[in-house]
Design a protein around this nucleic acid. Structure first.
Length: 824
DNA sequence: AGCACGCCGACT
DNA sequence: GTCGGCGTGCTC
């Protein structure tokens, strides 16, 4: 029998339950150019709607009767190599996402296509014949009217809009079958690539305002947009939406009514790479050299390995990284450095640029789509052989990978909270295994999991115990805030801290105060009745953005103007939140005439200003800096000799097995900020629970004791690394149904576990319980947790459960997803 | 998810 | 009689 070429394709339209490689026939004319890793346009489902897919493999095979054919190729070179395809398949199994979800995470947004279907009147069909074919069908006639009105082609979007709630598909199908219409699909490159939408007024501002003013009450957004444009002339549609709360639809309607015009404008790509002096060669001290040699030996062995570099704050891990990368490049291989957040590591970026210059590509989420795409291409082409970036950079198309460094590996930003819910550490491990590369986890306070694996010999362990220039650790003092309170001091600043600050001011030395808050956001609260505006769609408070003066919801994006007065009692609003402002005020009262600099999301908007603030703090020797978590990271200032932690407890008493680890890490980092220069540093930790072991060990900078306590607790409580938590989240608009879904899931699992085949499986079911944010976007969320071991069997069970939930007919409208060891 | 097929009520 | 409602089942 005649052999044909089959393409195995992962589909963008597939959900997890139906996701698998689908077989398509590859037409002869595509045989030459098609290759695995290319995206394709294929028909799918009973309606043969055209969707995007990606070729996973090509093979010869027998023509099956129900096989459909690939319509077109969307790429001329593969966008994924075979390793990436393997990784995508692995991610599906590991993170319960579709293969396409995984592929999407690997590609820069600038590569996305948006598919547009359009129906064209077929060649050689005249108007009369067309309407005859439409017969008495009202729908078909309307489609033809539309097509002829638009010069013979009607876009699917137009047709849908014209039909409203009615379904145009039967009529379209009829016309297509009778040869009157032909379907064409065009693929255009995705959003934001090199251009942005700029909106400006089409008429003079006064005229525009006069036109929208009468309807100010009924169409406030239109008015707000016109008002903004009158003031600023033109703005990108993104900015307008942010500042006014208008949607893209509002902008379109303004354009449609002739008030505004929208045009695409080129935006400038990548700011010219900062010119830095070539760096001096790195000189390692004895300890660093030992670690370097040990790790480099692993790299040279050409086998995959993982190592943990445990180096106390200031022990110079970066120098070790640089030497390792140099050697990796010498071997002709590529290297990757992952950091928790690019904005917080300007110094690190600077150092790497000065060492590797143009060989570096920087990838992180706040790059514009075009910039990211450019960097991605530089990596793929081999021009850039060192990649530095955040979580998603772990997918960079770096060839011949030799080394991946995960700096500050304990940071939670390495875990994705969106689909695909991957952990960069796991993906890095996979890539290293495939490329015989070395994974290096670096940290001053390693995650308990990683240290456990290092201690049990799974990872090689390298330790840097001495601080750079053998500087002494700061002297740490714990202050009991309960006693302060009893002593009549209700403020945020204890007696001791005040005295130390005074001493620093007298000596002309600088101090940093750290507020241990998880979020940096500000809420509006009524001064009279205490009302805090919350989101109408989510069970969350709205946060106040001073940049646009609006209240916004972090979960669903809802945004509203800050009311002039409390809608309940008419009282005035004031702002509560990270509390940095309050501390700033207290300090200004304590030390009149002293400048107190504040750093939180309210004073920091972009990467730039974060750096600028710090530069000013350093250069002008601003006496006191108050800030949230962003002051804890990577700041090295000679003249800072005092660090104060205002409220050490706040991150500790939350319902998360990682709370201790996170608090220890934060406190250690903050304390390490003191005394980087010639002078010895001091640190003060204020707490209401001075007896707490996490705080005590952090104050003593005693990771080993902290680790021993924590690992014992993890073992006792059945938390990672001893067990894994599979969290299933059900969501839907009806709370009772969502809860019922969780109960059903639990029952299903219990019945499966009763099967003798699973007798040996060591599992425990917890919940259902409402998610920490119980409602998002009007959808209620409940969670069911399975504590067990992340084995193939367990993952298969969870996958089967998701499929069962999907096909549960009584549970329509409730969706379920799974996450392994989530971060909240 | 999204679409077709199929089976019941209210309309020309 | 048919148009159109939404329950059910499949997607190469």
């Amino acid at each position: 029998m005649e052999q044909v070429i089959l393409a195995k394709v992962a589909l963008s339209a597939a959900t997890f339950a139906i996701d698998k490689p689908y077989d398509y026939l590859l037409p002869d004319e595509l045989r030459e150019s098609a290759a695995p890793g290319m995206r394709v346009l294929v028909p799918f489902g009973a309606g043969n709607r055209r969707i995007e897919g990606i070729i996973l493999a090509l093979s010869r095979g027998q023509p099956a009767p129900r096989l459909k054919a690939v319509i077109a190729l969307l790429d001329d070179t593969p966008v994924l190599d075979s390793e990436s395809i393997q990784l995508a398949l692995w991610m599906r199994e590991r993170y319960f996402c579709t293969v396409y979800d995984a592929a999407r995470a690997m590609l820069p947004a600038g590569l996305y296509f948006s598919l547009q279907d359009q129906y064209r009147i077929a060649k050689g069909v005249d108007k009369e014949a067309a309407y005859e074919a439409a017969g008495r069908s009202d729908h078909a006639r309307r489609i033809l009217d539309l097509a002829y009105a638009c010069g013979g082609t009607a876009e699917m979007g137009q047709i849908r809009a014209a039909f409203g709630t009615k379904d145009p598909n039967p009529a379209l199908k009829q016309l297509t079958e009778r040869g009157v219409l032909t379907l064409e699909t065009s693929a255009s490159r995705g959003v934001g690539d090199k251009t942005e939408q700029v909106v400006s007024l089409a008429v003079p501002p006064e005229e525009a305002l006069a036109l929208v003013a009468p309807k100010r009450k009924t169409a406030p957004l239109r008015y707000a947009v016109v008002e903004l444009l009158s003031a600023v002339g033109q703005a990108s549609s993104k900015e307008i939406c942010y500042f006014t709360g208008a949607s893209a639809a509002t902008l379109r309607s303004l354009v449609k009514s002739g008030l505004a015009v929208m045009e695409k404008r080129e935006v400038f790509r990548r700011a010219a790479p900062e010119q830095t002096e070539p760096a001096q060669p790195v000189v390692l001290n004895e300890e660093q050299a030992a670690a370097f040699e040990g790790i480099d030996r692993l790299c040279g062995a050409g086998k995959s390995a993982a190592a943990l570099l445990y180096g106390v704050t200031g022990s110079g891990k970066t120098q070790v990284y640089i030497r390792l990368i140099e050697e990796t490049l010498k071997r002709g291989r590529g290297a990757m450095v992952l950091v928790p957040e690019i904005a917080l590591t300007p110094q690190l970026l600077h150092i790497f640029t000065s060492h590797f210059g143009d060989a570096i590509a920087v990838l992180h989420s706040s790059l514009r789509a075009g910039e990211r795409y450019d960097e991605w291409k530089r990596v793929r082409s081999g021009k850039a052989r060192v990649v530095i970036g955040t979580r998603s950079a772990v997918f960079a198309p770096l060839q011949n990978l030799g080394l991946i460094v995960l700096d500050e590996e304990q940071e939670y930003t390495y875990k994705s909270e969106n689909v695909p819910r991957y952990h960069a550490r796991d993906v890095a491990k996979f890539r290293c295994a495939r490329s015989n590369a070395v994974l290096l986890l670096g940290s001053a306070t390693p995650s308990v999991e990683s240290m456990y694996l290092a201690k049990t010999g799974v990872y090689h362990l390298f330790t840097l115990r001495s601080r750079y220039n053998t500087r002494a650790l700061p002297q740490v003092q714990i202050v009991d805030m309960k006693r302060e309170l009893r002593g009549g001091n209700g403020s945020d600043i204890s007696q001791q801290l005040r005295e130390e600050l005074k001493a620093n001011l007298d000596r002309g030395e600088q101090s940093i105060l750290f507020l241990n808050r998880r979020g940096n956001s500000r809420m509006a609260a009524c001064g009279e009745c205490g009302e805090v505006p919350s989101c109408p769609r989510c069970s969350a408070y709205l946060t106040y953005h001073s940049a646009n003066g609006r209240l916004m919801c972090h979960y669903c994006g809802h945004s509203e103007r800050l009311p002039d007065a409390c809608p309940h009692c008419g009282g005035a609003f004031h702002f509560i939140g990270s509390g940095t402002q309050k501390v700033q005020e207290e300090l200004e009262e304590l030390f009149p005439g002293t400048e107190v600099m504040r750093m939180d999301t309210d004073t920091v908007s972009a990467v730039q200003s974060h750096e600028k603030l710090l530069a000013r703090f350093e250069k002008e020797k601003v006496p006191i800096l108050v800030g949230t978590q962003m002051v804890a990271k990577g700041l090295d200032f000679e003249n800072v000799t005092l660090v104060g932690v205002i409220s050490a407890d706040l991150s500790l008493y939350v319902d998360d097995y990682r709370a201790g680890e996170r608090t220890f890490s934060l406190l250690t980092q903050v304390v390490g900020r003191a005394g980087r220069g010639e002078k010895t540093g001091r640190a003060i930790i204020q707490t209401f629970t001075p007896e707490n072991e996490v705080i005590a060990t952090a104050a003593a900078q005693d990771y080993d004791t902290f680790y021993q306590q924590e690992i014992t607790m993890r073992r006792l409580r059945g938390c990672p690394p001893f067990r894994d938590l599979f969290v299933l989240t059900a969501s839907g608009t009806e709370e009772s149904r969502v809860l019922r879904m969780c109960v059903r899931l639990r029952r299903t699992l219990e019945s499966w576990f009763a099967d003798p085949a699973y007798q040996g499986l060591d599992v425990q079911l917890l919940g259902p319980a409402p998610a920490s944010v119980a409602k998002v976007n009007n959808r209620y969320r409940y969670r069911l947790t399975i504590s067990g071991h992340n084995s193939k069997t367990m993952r298969a069970l969870v996958a089967a459960l998701l499929c069962a939930a999907h096909s549960d007919k009584e549970m329509k409208g409730v969706s379920v997803f799974a996450d392994v060891n989530p971060m909240d």
